[in-house]
Design a binder for these strands. Structure first.
Lengths: 223, 223
DNA sequence: AGAATCGACATGAAAAATTCAGGAAAATAC
DNA sequence: GTATTTTCCTGAATTTTTCATGTCGATTCT
């Protein structure tokens, strides 16, 4: 499900710039140019997240946030402030009125998007008591490790790349050709058996049964 | 794991009454009798939840909450207000300064306990890892110093930078590439083996076992 | 049908290539 | 001057690749 984001800023340029980028990330984006409008839109669309400029004429960010926080219907909505760099006071004020996070202008789109993602992830994690991953193993890209039966195994480069490739689309059959180009690229030349050998090493480490061979085509990871 | 709750009220009777009931439920309960004390205790014990009386002399609940919200270390802490019935204004004010929930006096213990449980459950669902990370060594950014087995070791600049980089995300594998750009930047050119040498020095000083090398990729700090 | 054949992969062993640790010394900073 | 940072070289360890051989099933031949 796509998340709804309400973007509030009085400068149309910024509004459009940020909107464009968020839409491209797949979010449903609403906009408002002042606090009053923001409240109205928020009441209607129940956004998951509100990005709120601090400096606005008439009703500034803090006031707006307070008003948002006063509305119990919006209590699950996250509020993130935007403000010019260095306005420490405002930053504090922001948290004071219940902001959940804080971003400084000038806005770095990449940063904003990743923060937004992080925050929305937290929302998702909340009501869902989920505990997925019945896959037997866990692949941890950050640590470069695989956890199997509680044991942490660190894999060397090629092995990890291969596992990640297979693991990232569980159940899907990956043709040898694809493995080849994705791991070795188009300009490196290695013999035919090389893939087999790496597959074998992987099987030794994460368990035989998880990687299935489809003769004449390729391999797939079975959860 | 038991949750930590900080209880703030100026009336000792209430304090003891609520404390007794929460402890019986298995929570770790801290208390404070005014806002200032609350802030101090909160900073120390990092409570999961703060139960905050609105009506207190000197520094009232709203002020205290604002101060709590201003402390980034406590951003994951939930704040619940307690106040006499019917004080609608206060209620609004409570949310205005970032409260997460609201309870009215006179306190019905059953209700309070169930609300507390509900709130703490929400915290657990969040992917918030416990406090900092207990990692065997302590890194002191101010003094360029590392404390290991009670001994204080001063590191030179590059070594410290390297350690800090690894240490700041324990467990995460830092690719050589990243180490390179984060410590030397993009415009300085140093040989390939330079990183290795610094890693070795670090290992000599803080202990071999803590820095793990992943061949062909990089290094990581293991707590 | 049964035997021979063949394609495609598995496997074990081992060569080849990388990649690091360690020691020492040169270059640089302080 | 000493302390720190960097380079360089050697040897060891690990990873990556190759190679020869074995297995299994499907196809073909007789």
């Amino acid at each position: 499900m796509s998340h709804r984001i309400l973007l509030v800023d009085d400068e149309v340029d910024i509004l459009e710039f940020v909107r464009y980028n968020l839409v491209r990330e797949g979010y449903e984006v609403y906009t408002a140019q002042n606090g009053a409008e923001a409240l109205k839109v928020a009441a209607e669309c129940h956004p998951h997240l509100i990005l709120l400029d601090m400096m606005m004429p008439v009703m500034d960010g803090a006031q707006t946030c307070r008003a948002i926080r006063a509305n119990p219907e919006l209590k699950d909505t996250m509020v993130v402030f935007l403000s010019a760099l260095g306005e420490e006071e405002q930053q504090l004020a922001g948290f004071g009125v219940g902001a959940d996070d804080y971003l400084t202008k000038p806005i770095k789109m990449k940063l904003l998007v990743s923060r937004v993602q992080a925050i929305l992830k937290r929302i998702d994690a909340d009501p869902i008591p989920e505990k997925p991953a019945p896959t037997g193993i866990t692949v941890d890209r950050e640590r470069y490790t695989v956890i199997r039966d509680g044991e942490e195994i660190t894999l060397p480069r090629k092995e990890f790349a291969l596992l990640e490739l297979l693991y990232s689309s569980p159940g899907r059959l990956i043709p040898r050709e694809e493995i080849y180009t994705k791991i070795w690229g188009t300009d490196v030349v290695v013999g035919d058996r090389t893939i087999d050998v790496h597959i074998r090493k992987l099987r030794q480490k994460i368990g035989d049964e998880r990687i299935v061979t489809v003769k004449g085509v390729g391999y797939k990871y079975e959860p």
